[in-house]
Nucleic acid binder design. Structure first.
Lengths: 146, 146
DNA sequence: CAGTATTCGTTGCATGCGCAACAACGTCAA
DNA sequence: TTGACGTTGTTGCGCATGCAACGAATACTG
């Protein structure tokens, strides 16, 4: 029995804790989106960006909502398939694509967005006074190079 | 052009921000573990728990390190395959399994654990004074029911 | 004790993922 | 204009994942 290993408490390891907390929130949301609307997490990000950006290309999705381009492309395809999104070529640069919400997609977002907003509110209530520091910490993580 | 959709800023949506930040940390770590040791994230969690828990069953992994049982089972298989972990049946309850670090696995952890600890330190330096609130917020998220 | 329910770990299946390769298109210099 | 180079989006491939179903082992109940 060699007890020479350094002590290490996984439950205090920040990347682990962040992942677990994030998975918890995402799983809860994803379950609602999926069961009620048949929408996955990636698809939801696309929809949200379309809802306030209008016409968008794949590479813009990649940059704005942190979706790798193949993931963005496939999410968009599924949304087109489902009738929530319209895809057409960009005539000014035919490499690009113009994604936009269809009427049906817009109707969907009329339900989804308020649901997300109320989720955010409940979350902020739960987090309470730590909210500002939480945001500051997340920004520090995003800007740090590690 | 119906501009009737509620405003919603994805970049302020907490589940999204948490996921992005967590992915950023996990991806950085995973890359190092994978390129230097051929270890995935799930496998790493198993190793860490084995390093301070000794002999462990799959269901204990599931409970302690938040790995769904099939994920834990497959991670363990890969580690056995790689020679880092030993698996044998539990004689007192033959449904259970006893996973433990092999000598090779222990040697691996001698390198991995200090690396993780120093990563945590750099992270805490980056987060600075927000650290306590960050932890409090994460705990609130974990305990809330949403 | 027999018979049923429960627990544990593994596996089959469908699916989503990341990465590299690719075709189509545009840019730029000579 | 031509040809080399960069960009954009899609797709093939291998792999990890989540879920349900399953066999084996144990616990429980009357």
């Amino acid at each position: 029995m060699s007890r020479d290993l350094p002590d290490f408490d996984l439950s205090r390891f920040l990347p682990y804790r962040l992942t677990v907390a994030s998975d918890r929130l995402s799983a809860g949301l994803a379950r609602r989106y999926r069961t009620e609307f048949g929408i996955s997490n990636a698809e939801w990000r696309v929809l949200v960006h379309l809802a306030d950006a209008g016409e968008v290309s794949i590479r813009e999705l990649e940059a704005r909502v942190h979706l790798e381009k193949s993931k963005a492309s496939r999410a968009a395809s599924r949304l087109v398939e489902a009738g929530h999104v319209t895809k057409r070529p960009n005539p000014e640069d035919r490499r690009l694509v113009r994604l936009s919400l269809s009427d049906r997609g817009r109707a969907l977002m009329t339900e989804l967005l308020p649901m997300a907003a109320s989720y955010q509110e409940r979350l902020e209530a739960v987090i309470g006074t730590h909210m500002d520091d939480l945001e500051a910490a997340l920004e520090a993580i995003m800007e740090a190079d590690l």
